[in-house]
């Protein structure tokens, strides 16, 4: 039997195609991309070796630092808010709506399946100030507040991006965390209730510590997604005003395809990869320390 389950030829037939495609289109380009970081040029004009120039350029490039800063700030705010909102929803589903939550879960979840480009175009109109007054500004006018030019200032554009991200993803995180909160054994909640813990105390002392693992995986998933934000920025603000909302992904895209600098573009892509790795390790480490402390 072991001979059959370990049949080398069968492994080759079953795994071969996937591994070949994956190696050729994913692994080889990753290594190749590392090679580009010490090059200057593009496929049309050819490449020349330029050592560490791209890295020196990156560290002295204000636009690159602005992109790094925007990426980190966006990822941090977005991750905290979407996981928090999702967690709030999951508590609502489990402890308040209970069995009746299915329909509401399904409704709040839906925007995650929509194309981000379409949502972004819709949000441009929702937040429009002129020539038409969009629903958001109309609502503000109703409250006696003047229309805000949401896409005119870096700060306002940032928050529209955040609000749109929340609208799109909070239902997803709600369902993701719902499964985790649901896994908490009923007996533990019951015994805590008998001890007199209710409401917020119950959440703080029992529910929160027990849902830490699923919160941790949500945080890692979220930070990895938000560090790579691209679609929503391109379609909503296109990095503007100026380059105030340009993340590393978009800066890499513009550098490579608008200016044809493949070497520098690869360097930016590498920096983004390092950033993703650093944040994942950081969250892993910091939560693990907390867990041992408890």
């Amino acid at each position: 039997m072991e001979r059959v389950l370990g049949d080398k030829r069968a492994v080759l037939i079953l795994l071969g195609p996937a591994l070949l495609l994956y190696s050729l289109i994913m692994l080889v380009p990753i290594i190749w991309s590392l090679g580009y970081t010490v090059m200057d040029g593009n496929p049309i004009v050819g490449f020349t070796f330029n050592g560490l120039d791209n890295f020196i350029k990156f560290f002295n490039d204000p636009a690159a630092w602005s992109a790094v800063w925007f990426t980190i700030r966006f990822a941090f705010v977005m991750t905290v808010l979407q996981v928090a909102a999702g967690y709030g929803l999951s508590l609502l589903y489990v402890f308040y709506l209970k069995k009746a939550s299915s329909t509401i879960r399904t409704i709040i979840f839906f925007p995650i399946v929509l194309p981000t480009v379409a949502i972004a175009l819709l949000f441009t109109r929702l937040f429009e100030a002129a020539p038409t007054t969009g629903p958001v500004n109309s609502f503000l006018n109703l409250l006696g507040i003047e229309s805000v030019d949401w896409f005119g200032t870096p700060e306002a554009s940032f928050w529209v991006l955040i609000l749109m991200g929340l609208w799109q993803s909070m239902g997803f995180y709600g369902v993701l965390l719902y499964a985790g909160v649901l896994d908490i054994p009923e007996e533990m909640l019951e015994s805590a209730r008998l001890d007199g813990a209710g409401g917020w105390k119950l959440v703080r002392t029992i529910v929160l510590p027990l849902s830490l693992p699923v919160l941790l995986s949500s945080l890692i998933f979220s930070i990895n997604g938000t560090l790579k934000v691209f679609d929503s920025v391109v379609a909503l603000t296109n990095g503007g005003p100026g380059n105030a909302t340009t993340p590393l992904t978009l800066y890499m895209f513009q550098t490579s395809f608008t200016y044809g600098q493949y070497g520098y573009g690869s360097t930016i892509a590498l920096m983004l990869t390092i950033l993703c790795l650093l944040f994942t390790v950081f969250i892993f480490r910091s939560t693990r320390r907390d867990l041992t402390k408890d």
């Binding site: 289109i25 994913m26 080889v28 380009p29 990753i30 190749w32 991309s33 580009y36 560090l227 790579k228 992904t249 890499m252 895209f253 490579s256 493949y262 573009g265 690869s266 930016i268 892509a269 590498l270 983004l272 990869t273 993703c276």
Partner: peptide, 9 residues
Amino acid sequence: VPTQMILLP
């Protein structure tokens, strides 16, 4: 790994 890593090659 972000898709950006493989686009240029």
